[in-house]
Every structure is written in C-alpha cells, then in structure tokens.
Design a binder for these strands. Structure first.
Lengths: 115, 115
DNA sequence: TGCACGTGCCATTAATTCATTGCATGTGCC
DNA sequence: GGCACATGCAATGAATTAATGGCACGTGCA
C-alpha cells in the first residue's frame, strides 16, 4: 500500500487509523508477528471488546488482515497480521491526495467504494 | 521533519493532523505558496474562525509556520507556509515510535516536550 | 455437567472534538 | 466619522467517537 494509491478520502481514514495510541500499539505488536485476539488483548492489557473495535478499524483501512486458525484442541482462533505498507507523507503527496477529496469527507463518512 | 524524529506521542498527533479534509486542503493550498488567513479562508470557502482553528493545530504539530507581513496599505497580515516534511509510515517506523508512547497519550494530551 | 478459553456483537454512557456566532482591536481611505 | 478588510479569541451547542459491560455461542476436558 502506498500513498499515491489512495484517494484523498481514503488517505484521511488511513492516516487517522494509526493516529491512536491503541492502534499504534496494536500495529507494533503485530509487526512482531501474527497473533490471535485474546492473546493480543492480554499482551496489550486492554479488553477484548476494545481491541476488536480497533482491529476492525485497522482492517477496514487495510492495515491488517486476518485468517482463522484452528488450534489442536479445536479452538477457532482469529489471527491478525500486518499488511506491509509504506505511506510517504509530504506536502506534495498530500496536495495530490487532496484533489480527490469529496466534501462528504468533511465529516468522515462514506467512501464506500462499492463495486 | 521525519518520522524517526518523533516520539510516539508526537507522531500520533502529527498523523491525526492531516487526517482531516479541512487540514489536508489547507496543507495542499499552502503547498502552492504562502498566503494569509483571510485570503486562504476565501480560497477554501470556509470561515476564518474555522480556518484559524485548523491552522493553529497544523502549526502546533509543526506542519506549517507563520510570519507577519505588512502590506503597503499598512495591514498586518499573517502569512502561513508549509514546513517541509517527509513522514514515512511503515510497520517498522510505527513499531519504533510506539515504544515511546506514554499511556497518558491514550487520550491525546500533553507531550509538551518542554526544552 | 461445569469450567476454561475463544469469538462476536450490541446497547448505553461518557468524553471529545468540531464548527458557529459574536464581539473586540487596528489601519487606510472616502 | 463610517466603511472595508485584517486578526484574535472565547463561549456555546451540536455531533461524533471511544470505551465499557453484558450476553450469546462453540469446543475440549475433568
């Protein structure tokens, strides 16, 4: 994932995602390697509910991905891993992205690039 | 300004700043060249009050700088310009930054790195 | 069967942030 | 003096986001 691949609206959301202590820590933790929700929650010392909210958001913007993995004892665990990305922010890249900003983004909605 | 120059707390704030349509547009506009508040407000089609709020925030995180310029007719105008920056976000840079995250940042305060 | 552990999601409340409006100050010009 | 334009800031209300708690479901094991 690169800065130039994103529309202004998308970039706004992608940037806002790591811009949170919780999510930054989650990314950092996953940068070490994949882990499953409950374990990650314990590692970070936050509730599973809260972690899931942040994971979902990270996944929505495409910063992390998940896959189910069944442990030997039959437990279906959801593993998350970081999706490689390299976002370069410069006045230029932002200026370019801003060109594709829609006014509906002023609040931070939609951009549900459907089909 | 570079990613590695920032502490986790700072990075969180810096990232959150362009993560706003308004501020992204402001940066884009300033990327073209310096301008003064009232003019910029007209260009962007937003109120001066609102623009000032965003400019202040951009300046707080060091993305823009200002200087007074007195026009021929004696009006003191405040010009703003973009401060060159290149922030590279990768799982690694974020992981590194996260190490210096303080828990007080969970809400988004302080980081008033004094001297 | 009861306990431990994993997942998922919703409703509620609390806290933050965002934007608007209004007013005050200063300078040049008609 | 009155009008136009520039800046600045504070109070207020609206809206959005964040986090918690509770509850449901499934599997393996003593």
């Amino acid at each position: 994932m690169e800065t130039t691949d994103l529309t202004g609206d998308s970039l706004v959301k992608v940037l806002a995602t790591p811009a949170s202590p919780h999510r930054m820590r989650v990314l950092a933790a996953l940068a070490t390697g994949p882990t499953y929700v409950s374990q990650l929650a314990r590692d970070l010392g936050i509730s599973r509910a809260l972690l899931q909210v942040h994971l979902k958001r990270l996944q929505t913007v495409g910063l992390v991905a998940d896959h189910i993995e069944v442990s030997d004892d039959g437990k279906a665990m959801k593993f998350y891993e970081v999706v490689p990305f390299a976002l370069c922010l410069t006045p230029q890249t932002l200026a370019t992205a801003s060109e594709s900003l829609t006014d509906s983004a002023d609040r931070g909605e939609s951009t549900k690039k459907g089909t």
